[in-house]
Computed example of a mutant assay.
Amino acid sequence: MSKNGQSLIVVRKKKSHKHGHHGGSWKIAYADFMTAMMAFFLVMWLLATSSPQQRQQIAEYFNMPLKAALSQGNKDSLSDSVIPGGGDDVIKQSGEVFKQTLRKIDREKSVQNLKRALDKLESLIKNDPRLSNYAANLRLSLSDDGLLVQILDTQDRPMFRVGGVRLEPYMVGILQSLAPVLNELPNLISLTGHTDSLPYAGGSAGYSNWELSADRANASRRTLVAAGLSPDKFMRVTGTADIMVLENTQPTDPSNRRISILVLSREKEKSIRREYTSQNIVSAMQQIEQTQAQLKTVASPPGIEQTGSAILNQEKVEQDGRK
C-alpha cells in the first residue's frame, strides 16, 4: 500500500513472440492446391496412357450427349437415360457412345472400301482388254446403297443369246474380270436380272420376262462362282422383268436388258435383313391366325348350334303336348 493509504494496481503486459501463430487457414489453401495438382497429374497420366480412339470416345462422352440434349435432339437408342446418347457406362463396350462410335467407324470404313473398289474397277476397264473393249456396256456408280455395276445390252452386242440364258463369250470375260475385285470386298452382293418390255417370244407356255430375267441372273451368278467368287457373297439373286427401266430410255430400249451387281453397303445390308425378318414375322402371325381359325372350326363345326336348337324346340313341343 502507498503512504497515503491508497492501493496500487500493477498491470503486466505479456510480450508477444516475434513469429506468432497466424491461424489454420493456410492449411485449407494448401490442401486445395495439392488436390488440384493430384487431379492435374492424374489427367496427364490418363492422356499419356490412352489411345487416340479412347481419347475420342471420352471427348464424345462429354460433347455429344450434352449437345443433343441442349438442341432437343432425338435419342439414337432405347436407353432410359434422360440425356440422348447417354446411359450407364457410356464409354465402354456396353455404352451407347462407344457403340455409336464403332458404327460410325464401320460405316466410314465400308464407304472407303467401296470407293477404292470403284477406282480399281475404273482402272480395270481402261487396262483389261476383257473390259476395255466393252466400256460402252458397263456403268459404274456409287450411292448410299453401295457400289452398282451394270452390264448393259446394246443393239449390236447382246450379253445373252437372244431369248435365252446362255452368256455370250464376252459376257463371260466381263464377269471373270469382275470376280477378283468383288471377292476382295467384305460386302455382300445383290444380283438382279432385267429385261426390256418386249414380250418373251420363246414359245414356252407360262414362261415370261419374269422367268427370263431371273434365269439370266442365276446364270450370271454361276459364272461368277466359276470364276472364283465365293458363293457366300450373294445375299439375294432376283429377276425384275421390265419394271425397272433406266432413266432417259424407252421401255423397249436394248439397254434395259441388263445385269445389275450391287455391292451392298452396311446400311443397305441391314435394311434388307430387317425387311426379310419383318416379312417372316408377318407370315408367322398369319399362319398362327389361320391355325386358330381352323381350331375354332373343328371345335364348333357348322350346324351344331342349329342342331342343338332343333332338339330343344322338339323337346319343348313334346312337353306342351303332354300338358
Rank of each mutant, 00 (worst) to 15 (best):
L124A: 03
D242G: 03
T223C: 04
A310Y: 03
S260P: 00
L66M: 15
A29S: 13
R266E: 10
G203D: 13
Q286A: 09
R236F: 04
G203T: 12
I151P: 00
L138S: 05
I151T: 00
Q314N: 04
S208D: 12
R266G: 08
E108P: 03
T49A: 07
K75P: 10
N4F: 03
M1F: 05
P186L: 00
A136N: 12
W26E: 09
I288P: 00
Q294S: 09
A135G: 04
E247N: 15
K18L: 13
F234D: 01
Q100T: 07
Q290S: 10
Y30D: 02
S190Q: 05
L152P: 02
L152M: 13
D128L: 01
S79E: 15
D145T: 11
K27N: 05
G163R: 12
S79R: 03
N74K: 08
D215S: 04
V165K: 15
H21L: 10
V162Q: 01
L224A: 06
R116D: 15
N280V: 01
S255T: 10
E184P: 02
G164D: 06
G303A: 04
A39V: 13
L46T: 04
L264M: 14
V225S: 03
Y276W: 10
T195C: 09
D145K: 06
K15L: 13
L140Y: 10
K104D: 15
V237A: 08
A284Y: 06
D128W: 01
G193T: 07
G87E: 13
D32Q: 12
D88Y: 07
L118G: 06
